[in-house]
């Protein structure tokens, strides 16, 4: 699995599609997914998960517990070699006022660390420009 991170509005998805030769049809948008805890990721036909931060946020909103979130993380760690996970960096602001936002950005940050540790490549996109971190 390949991890691509960066702030919002940095051109991450465009870069991934150009660099790895994937098409919009191969992109699963985490914003559109509100999975129940027992559901597995509907990955057939996809090569990219975009907006991991929203996928995780939606899971939290659906009431996923920590063991269920851990199982989700494990399934992400087992993605194929050529699969790309894109995630917005959300830990760069002040501590959010809302408890949900605090839990969410903690979950997103920790998940990205876990994915980065196992990923074959990690990229950070800044202003549309790629920087390889691993």
């Amino acid at each position: 699995m390949i991890l691509v991170i960066g702030g919002s509005q940095q051109g991450k998805l465009n870069w991934v599609m150009q660099n790895f030769g994937y098409t919009p049809e191969q992109v699963l948008n985490g914003r559109d997914l509100a999975l129940q805890p027992e559901q597995s990721l509907p990955l057939a036909g996809f090569k990219v998960i975009n907006h991991l931060e929203s996928l995780l946020g939606n899971a939290l909103k659906q009431g996923w517990q920590s063991d269920e979130l851990l199982a989700l993380q494990t399934s992400l760690l087992q993605l194929p070699e050529d699969f790309v996970v894109i995630c917005n960096s959300v830990g760069g602001g002040l501590v959010p006022v809302e408890r949900f936002d605090r839990e969410w950005r903690e979950l997103v940050g920790r998940t990205c660390c876990a994915l980065a540790a196992e990923a074959s490549q990690v990229w950070r996109i800044f202003c549309g420009l790629p920087q390889r971190l691993k």
Partner: peptide
Amino acid sequence: CVFADGASLSPEMHEYLYQLG
């Protein structure tokens, strides 16, 4: 660089970030 805030954004903030990005 103001693109990594973890708080919920209002539509106005989102529009600003979208255009600045």
